[in-house]
Amino acid sequence: MNSNSQIPTFKGIITPMITPMLNEDELDLKGLEKLINHIIAGGVHGVFILGTTGESTSLPYPMRHRLIEETCAMVNKRVPVLVGITDTAVSESLRLADTAEQCCASALVAAPPYYFNLGQPELIEYYEYLADRISLPMFLYNMPSHTKINIEPETVKKLSEHTNIIGLKDSSGNTAYFNKLLYRMRDNKDFSFFVGPEEITAETVLLGGSGGVNGGSNMFPKLYVKLYEAAVAGDIEKVKQLHSVVMEISSEIYNLGRFGSSYLKGLKCALGLLGICNDYMSAPLHRFKKEEKDRLALNLQNIQNKLS
């Protein structure tokens, strides 16, 4: 296991990278390289692959391992690479962790297994079992809308005692929960707290959070980096200005049509329209049809005009 002196500090904007694909079994490697270079050029502080935004649970296992290999090689240590290892089978999580270690990734991210509704004592047992068998540092991933399990503050406190567990990414969108976490962990300054929903990133950074794992930074990385920097500096007027654009992205890109997956459809469609990568989505999800795509193109142009 790692000693605390060996564990890097994570903060800032970490991009939860989409997975560019040509079809169900083939990565869009040209698009992947273009996306990675685009994100890093925008100044982000890290990339996170095989998360929700990366459609991880829909990808075949060979593609997941290939994505780790290709991403780590293309990033080439320019920024930290965080790798999602969430699975219902711990053996598959550990195989992904092994690939991540072999490819020199920086950290792992694991949500609770999403079939059995584990109680908090069982959740502690699960994470400790996992953390005992990995060599890279690991983030807990709170995603109750998808896993049906909320990682309670007391559970986070207990798990933070494990050397390999160094932080948490919260995608619940529950600011009361997040503030309870910050308060409960106020004496552990080395434990990192990130939020997923970009609509609350500035707020949580102002209150002491480490940063955001924001899907919009796939499209406009500089915007989210500037938002984070303004929040760290306490520049409220700048935060308000940039937050307004982030909210427009949320409204006009992520909420088209009556789809449970509108966020992902909109994000991938926008990246396709920007000429960065393919917008193919792994089943059971499917990309936007012409009507939504045409509407999104107009919305995207309006946002680009504001950022130019």
Rank of each mutant, 00 (worst) to 15 (best):
K189G: 04
L267K: 06
V156M: 02
S250R: 14
A233L: 02
K11V: 00
N23T: 08
V205P: 02
I14T: 05
V156W: 01
V232I: 15
L123I: 12
A233E: 12
P144Q: 05
R287T: 13
G12E: 02
K293P: 00
M219W: 01
L206N: 08
N305Y: 08
V79M: 12
Q120I: 09
Y228P: 03
E101D: 09
G119Y: 07
N218Y: 03
I236W: 01
I36M: 02
L307G: 12
N2P: 14
E26C: 10
E152L: 14
L267P: 04
E26A: 10
T175K: 10
H65P: 00
L256A: 08
K306D: 07
D235A: 11
E33A: 09
R133E: 10
V213F: 00
N305W: 02
I200C: 05
I134M: 06
T163F: 03
K180A: 14
M219G: 00
R258D: 15
L206E: 12
E26D: 12
E291W: 07
V195I: 15
T88W: 05
G119C: 03
P153E: 06
L27F: 09
V205A: 03
N218A: 03
D294E: 15
P8F: 03
S210N: 08
V47G: 06
V44L: 08
Y177N: 12
R184F: 05
V245G: 02
G208H: 04
D25Q: 13
E161L: 13
H146T: 04
L296Y: 09
S308M: 12
C104Y: 12
K226T: 00
I151C: 05
L94I: 13
S261D: 15
S106R: 01
E203D: 13
A283Y: 11
